[in-house]
Write a protein that binds this DNA or RNA. Structure first.
Lengths: 235, 235
DNA sequence: GTCGGTATACTAGTATACCAATTGATAAAT
DNA sequence: ATTTATCAATTGGTATACTAGTATACCGAC
């Protein structure tokens, strides 16, 4: 980082497609709790803040709504969804079901997993340093690559879309839990080992345990820092 | 049916929310092959045909695109997706994974299934008459009710959204296969039995077999009746 | 103090008109 | 026959306006 990062005049690249950028923008802020549950996201103020029109913003909001990260109430507003333990449990169940199917398929077909090695190398370093932020990104890459190898792109799309709830939970919990990434790294190793040994049920079981581990976290202490609102109050 | 059905002047009820109606309208026509693969769906002509604006129509199209029933190519058009055996296989795998998790949960918790009885009664009649159209609707109700009982609404939403591919396949295949609904009815009975006996793995297995049965159908003979286009050609 | 009505402001859904950028096909030129 | 120029069609996005629910604060009657 010798050169300064380009200063985004409005965070939105108007030469690329806008809606996906806005989706990423909002999803990141919901997941990391900068937009805590209950926050209202009004279209007109946010559109003018981002210097875009309501149209692409609405596309992003509809996506977030189908994923359950916000709820859109007509004539009322878009509200960031509350933490909901039932919803979280269902998300974990769904993720476990889908990703178990993915690794089951990989184990059955004895797919070559060598493309995972570079990801695992970075993970190992991040785990040793307890660098959870880096590990978080590589964890996403790990699971995406598994789905890609299994030739199940749709399963990954669904997993990603439902992961929002899990990630938000994890984000508020992860702070202060040491060795968390180390453990996740070992779980990844176990999943790979089971796949390589050609054991579908073993791989599925390893994946289930891995996905379920987020449920062990306490359901208290929701982060309450850095609230940020779009609407009549803030701008 | 003593009174004539109300003649819809434009098929769209302008007193209700428009986008979901258009979604249902298009989905039904894609699934039953009135809009066969490759058909172009242009926004402007269809909007004027339905006497609505592009705005809600685009919402419906985006939904169909995320479900993979159409592909939207910017500056080209919306095209009804081709049949794709790999995509169908993945859809079945995903459905099997999700619905297995649902019945597993029901069996574990020994949930009361009495609310299924009225659905099963109608199914039995439809199966005896080999009335596949009615059975099709009740099949949907059956699976939806299972998810509802398991308290997994999101799993059902995902299942429904991915079911489009499966349903389309089924629709083009079902004609000329007698006793098909009879067999599906018996599979439903087996699923219920396994759940009631408190066997999660048995219920999951029964559901997997049930969902997989669509793959037994031949992958030839795509229906070629009643094409219908929106765009420059038709109107 | 409580209940009921009212005025007001805010919001998403929809409609309409328009422009930009790009694609694909057609026509023209070589 | 092949390349090039032209043109129509299409989605993505902008801008604006209107509609009809909804929330909220206020006021008055009792």
């Amino acid at each position: 980082m010798t050169t300064k990062a380009p200063i985004p005049s409005s965070k939105i690249d108007h030469t690329a497609s806008i809606a996906p950028q806005v989706y990423d923008y909002l999803r990141a802020r919901i997941v990391d709790n900068r937009l805590p549950p209950g926050t209202r996201i009004s279209e007109a103020p946010l559109a003018s803040k981002l210097k875009i029109s309501r149209t692409p913003l609405r596309v992003a909001l509809q996506q977030l709504a189908t994923e359950g990260l916000i709820t859109t109430r007509p004539q009322v507003g878009n509200i960031v969804a509350e933490f909901d333990s039932a919803q979280l449990l269902e998300a974990v169940l769904i993720r476990a079901a889908l990703e178990s199917a993915v690794v089951r398929r990989l184990a059955n077909a004895m797919i070559d997993l060598s493309s995972l090695e570079s990801i695992m190398a970075v993970q190992e370093r991040a785990a040793q340093l307890d660098d959870y932020a880096t590990f978080f990104i590589q964890d996403e890459a790990f699971h995406a690559e598994l789905a890609r190898l299994a030739d199940m792109p749709r399963a990954w799309k669904i997993t990603h879309s439902i992961k929002g709830h899990v990630d938000r939970q994890r984000y508020t919990m992860m702070a202060g839990i040491p060795k968390r990434s180390q453990r996740a790294f070992e779980e990844h190793l176990r999943i790979i080992k089971e796949i390589r040994s050609g054991s579908p049920s073993g791989a599925a079981s390893a994946m289930r345990d891995h996905v379920n581990s987020v449920l062990e976290l306490d359901l208290q202490g929701h982060g309450k820092d850095l609230p940020e609102t779009y609407g009549q109050n803030n701008s």
